[in-house]
Nucleic acid binder design. Structure first.
Lengths: 263, 263
DNA sequence: CCAAAAGTGTTGTTTTTACACCCATGA
DNA sequence: TCATGGGTGTAAAAACAACACTTTTGG
């Protein structure tokens, strides 16, 4: 209401500028929902905070000379050891009450930081949510300075998360589902060589429902995005499935229009 | 690189906290792409800046006690006179070079502000993009304090926009297209009573292509989201078309699963 | 009365769904 | 050898795309 007044009354433009620094101050953070796929299950990478029972999404802050994407990439390089991680913004979380201004400072104090230095974390943060897709087996999880552990969790076994991270995770999952036909999810979550049943299980995990095997194969083939490898997965029980890899050029081209049809 | 060092070397946690306030400072703004629909055309609301030739998207800042959505809503209340505007975040724009730190302060100086007070606008802003849908005829455009005029423009006749606003607009259009089957675009862009040809023209404007009249009608009816009004649009040339309105309850329900099928 | 927009069905084609048997492998 | 998962095709149903004539109205 005050601002409306400033903007409508021309005389207050200078006042507005003076107050802006105080009235409009919010810090920006980012939180990443890192998805991996292993043994037919979607996994997410979570940190176990020091002196806290709850787990947290890997997150970070943006430096002056970085884009958000660069900051997220840097953060995830630290958490996973990987370069060039596939990243996608999906939402911004800006509830003024989303973070408890005492929680993080308290756990910092428990971690041995003097209380007067914890001010940074006591401020309001507006957080940009990213989801990231990584090849599970390539990741070497590394906790950050506020965490004890960094590990993969199944979605159902993740336990409670700090702050609004449950909400962020739910939004990431919804974004993942919505973008299945518009982003190369398979390319980024699976190893270079994979079998059709593996790809199908990935689709099933993302969509949360079973798909018909024959219809799935027909449809995937119809996109022309798979390169058949004349090679089979060996060492597994039962009939050896064929291996495939993505034809990235065709995959990208097909995604531009969106893979047609529903699942 | 410096940050990597801080986070990997435990001893620097306190240093990290001290520097964070300086290293991680970015201001948050928001920019709104306000869509309206009139005479078969998509329109956007743009401000003509004082002392600048280019036009700008309506934008604003977030107060301490607001969510981004509340801030956008407040901003658009000022620009349009409307309450409860339909708003949707679609992307965050964080290129460190996206804004010229001199441009806005210079035009403020031209507007009579003393140079030392323009510091707020010289800082780095990370901007959250929203698209808004309004009923064209309800809007009473009002310029803000930095602008001469606030008016509707056709997409093709908008002229050049400041900063990265062309990019923001392009992203908003892409989001609009992508969400056609998931958001009540028709409900928010059309008046309460409308004709099928009007609804079809809206779809055509958003998609940028012509649709077959009979197939369109069959498909729209099949969703069961329209209420037929036993009333015709009078006073227009040619055969009078029937009026319809949305059955909001059914529309919302249908959108949860997404309106099926492609356009 | 005529120009222009609106209403209305059918048909061929494509896409989707549902469904069952044989094969290869490791245990 | 057998239990388990992988490979493969067909038919019926649904969705989609293409297409033309008649009606109504204002000018």
């Amino acid at each position: 209401m005050r601002l409306v007044y400033y903007l409508l009354m021309e005389e207050s433009l200078e006042d507005f500028l003076e107050r802006a620094q105080r009235d409009f101050l919010a810090h920006i953070s980012l939180d990443c929902v890192v998805f991996g796929f292993h043994a037919g299950q979607l996994k997410i990478l979570l940190l176990k905070m020091k002196h806290e029972d709850k787990r947290a999404l890997p997150g970070g802050f943006v430096r002056k000379d970085e884009t958000l994407e660069e900051a997220a990439s840097r953060t995830l390089r630290e958490r996973t050891g990987l370069e060039n991680i596939f990243l996608q913004q999906f939402s911004v979380f800006s509830d003024p009450l989303r973070s408890d201004p005492d929680a993080r400072p308290q756990s910092l104090v428990l971690a041995g930081v003097s209380p007067e230095k914890t001010g940074f974390f006591a401020q309001r943060f507006i957080s940009v949510g990213f989801y990231a897709l990584v090849e599970f087996s390539q990741v070497v999880p590394r906790p950050d300075v506020l965490s004890d552990t960094c590990d993969w969790y199944n979605l159902e076994e993740r336990g409670p998360l700090i702050l609004d991270h449950d909400q962020i995770l739910a939004a990431a999952l919804a974004a993942l589902q919505a973008q299945l036909n518009y982003q190369p999810l398979g390319y980024n979550l699976l190893p270079r060589k994979f079998t059709l049943p593996e790809l199908q299980k990935l689709y099933e995990a993302i969509l949360g429902k079973k798909l018909d095997r024959r219809n799935f194969q027909r449809k995937i083939f119809s996109y022309g995005i798979l390169r058949s490898l004349d090679e089979k997965r060996t060492g597994v029980a039962h009939k050896a499935p064929y291996l495939y890899s993505f034809d990235l050029r065709k995959y990208q081209k097909a995604l531009k229009l969106g893979l047609q049809g529903g699942w």
